[in-house]
Design a protein around this nucleic acid. Structure first.
Length: 605
DNA sequence: CCCCCCCC
């Protein structure tokens, strides 16, 4: 299936690419000079989704590329502009290092008046026969990689005849997969697979209302949004699961944070947009997934919207929390999903999703469009747009069912680990140690090691717990008080009229087994003292008694501490240094569960 | 032109 024929190699000849301008969204556009050794073509733009190849240095000058997907726009003056949509680097420019051949500027027939001479060398769709990589869309009816050819030369890409067009319906439809912002004469025929409620917004740029929907056809899917007057025009008219002909909407680059659809673009309805019901019976899919294996979620950008499928391994009870912003009480439920990669992920369901959830019998759960959070390493959270289906009739679900019933139910699963910057310490930590363990097992002696423990602060050292630090962003160096109202940072070699307070707090922690000296830097010190470093610094200067009181109150409190033990050498003396990377309140529900598990393990032996 | 989706 992967028969790739390299038919069109291009060399970037000049000083590589040239940044031309930012488009309306502040995204840079790059122009590339292409050559196939015989002709060169300077009117080629890199699709913005390929910008990463420029910024990463992959597309340096003289790089040989294979162009998998592109489109050609002919301007009114006859000039042909190529938009490069998908390409692979065949040889890096540093290896090629030279121009190949003596390419002459390519002129389109309209421009040059030499109709066919260059044609064979020019990018026509016959020269590109590779199946595009296709983003896991094997059903996509792609026959070539050429999008939006000039009508005089080619029929529009994959145009299909509609058997019995109803009155006023278009004679041909385009696959969703072929839509780009560079071509606006298209009609799609697609099923509405999701439709949001009407939402209003109000911000500094204005206010209004909107709703959004997903369209799906055999080739792919696309999200569309209607604003203000288009809401009035289309909201009641467009119905979930119905099939429509849609044309004349605006296309723009999709933001992956808000959509899991495998499409680089999305639609905005405008005043010209036409939506016509499709009256004939058409066989179009009702849902399409772009599943990310659970283990791969750590390689997916946090805050993206994703599709995930897994076996419900365990289900938590409904709990209630108060939302910080709205102060409203909301219900939630935590569900744990696993797959063959032997990684478990937590999915938090909200409100009615939480209330209606029945995970008995370890069903397979597919969720389309849920938020990937970096809490606790990686976790999932359902959104109002999320579509959850139990035991869907898709191959992935059948495979998971068989695997779980066969061996999956007996397996152990690893969990995502927080990097300390966010996330669930307490109940979800795996490397639990007592301070006695730390000493007896030589934790951190060979390499730095993170561990979690429940412990109590028995002593906080007030002396030298804070210092005046450089106010520059990211520079935490101690400043020298020049006693003239200025503070000098040696690192920045600069004098500032101000400083910020930074904390290095030494504490003695104890659990039932042992005690341990631990260092708390800024963020964790602020957690255990319950005040910001600035407040504490001011307090120390203005109200010594209150400062004392603060330390009294912080003592003998217990937390779930995530600690890092590491050998450090200072003044020729090497010893274990333990730093707190996270201090979390004890979640007694979770912690009790852990203790019960510990006891059960003891009983088994 | 939204893009909030909650809690630990």
């Amino acid at each position: 299936m992967d028969a790739i024929i390299v038919t069109f190699c291009c060399v970037l000849l000049c000083q590589g690419q040239k940044k031309i301008a930012a488009n309306g969204q502040g995204v840079d556009r790059y122009r590339v000079l292409l050559s196939d050794g015989k002709f060169s073509h300077s009117s080629a733009l890199l699709a913005t989704q390929l910008n990463g190849k420029v910024t990463s240095g992959e597309l340096e000058a003289f790089t040989i590329i294979r162009l998998n997907k592109f489109m050609c726009n002919t301007l009114p003056n006859g000039k042909q502009v190529l938009i490069l949509l998908d390409l692979d680097v065949i040889a890096p420019g540093s290896e090629v290092a030279n121009r190949i051949g003596n390419p002459q500027p390519y002129k389109s027939p309209d421009q040059s008046g030499q109709p066919t001479q260059n044609r064979a060398e020019a990018p026509s769709n016959e020269t590109v026969t590779r199946q595009p990589p296709n983003n896991n869309r094997p059903e996509a009816p792609k026959s070539n990689g050429f999008y939006g050819a000039q009508p005089a030369v080619r029929k529009p890409y994959s145009a299909q005849k509609v058997s019995k067009p109803a009155e006023g319906t278009p004679s041909k439809v385009h696959p969703i997969d072929s839509l780009t912002p560079y071509q606006n004469r298209w009609t799609i025929r697609a099923r509405v697979t999701s439709k949001s409620n009407i939402r209003t917004w109000s911000n500094s740029r204005g206010e209004g209302k909107l709703f959004s929907m997903n369209f799906l056809d055999d080739s792919g899917e696309i999200r569309a949004t209607a604003f203000k007057s288009e809401v009035d025009k289309f909201y009641d008219f467009i119905q979930l699961n119905k099939v429509y002909y849609i044309s004349k909407a605006t296309l723009k680059t999709a933001d992956k944070r808000y959509s899991s659809l495998a499409n680089d673009y999305e639609m905005t309805f405008n005043s010209d947009t036409q939506v016509i019901p499709c009256e004939e019976e058409v066989d179009l899919p009702t849902i399409k997934y772009n599943f990310i294996p659970i283990g791969k979620l750590s390689e997916t950008a946090a805050n993206n919207t994703v599709d995930v499928i897994g076996v419900v391994r365990s289900v938590g009870d409904i709990t209630k929390v108060i939302a910080k912003q709205s102060q409203k009480e909301i219900t939630k439920r935590e569900v744990f999903l696993v797959d063959e990669g032997q990684v478990q992920v937590r999915l938090t369901l909200w409100s009615s999703d939480a209330e209606n959830f029945d995970g008995s019998g370890n069903p397979v759960l597919a969720i389309k469009g849920c938020r990937l959070s970096d809490w606790g390493g990686r976790s999932l959270s359902s959104l109002s747009q999320s579509q959850m289906i139990m035991n869907p009739d898709v191959p992935e679900a059948h495979k998971l069912r068989g695997w779980y019933d066969d061996i999956g139910h007996t397996m152990d699963y690893s969990e995502f680990q927080s990097d300390g910057s966010s996330g669930a310490g307490g109940g979800y930590a795996t490397n639990w140690k007592t301070f006695d363990d730390v000493k007896k097992q030589n934790i951190g002696q060979d390499k730095p090691e993170y561990f979690t423990t429940k412990a109590t602060i028995v002593f906080l050292k007030k002396e030298n717990c804070m210092y005046m630090a450089c106010p520059a962003e990211g520079c935490n160096k101690k400043v020298v008080d020049l006693a003239n109202g200025l503070y000098r940072c040696e690192k920045c070699s600069k004098e500032y009229p101000n400083y910020k307070w930074r904390m290095i707090l030494t504490a003695n922690l104890a659990d039932f087994s042992e005690n341990q000296w631990v260092t708390f830097f800024q963020e964790t010190a602020e957690v255990v003292l319950g005040r910001s470093a600035d407040e504490i610094g001011q307090m120390r200067e203005s109200d010594e008694a209150q400062f004392e009181q603060l330390f009294q109150e912080a003592s003998f409190k217990s937390y779930i501490f995530k600690l890092r033990a590491k050998m450090e050498t200072y003044n020729d003396e090497t010893r274990l240094k333990t730093v707190c990377v996270q201090a979390s309140p004890v979640n007694f529900h979770e912690y009790s569960k852990k203790i019960i598990e510990d006891i059960e393990k003891l009983l088994v032996v």
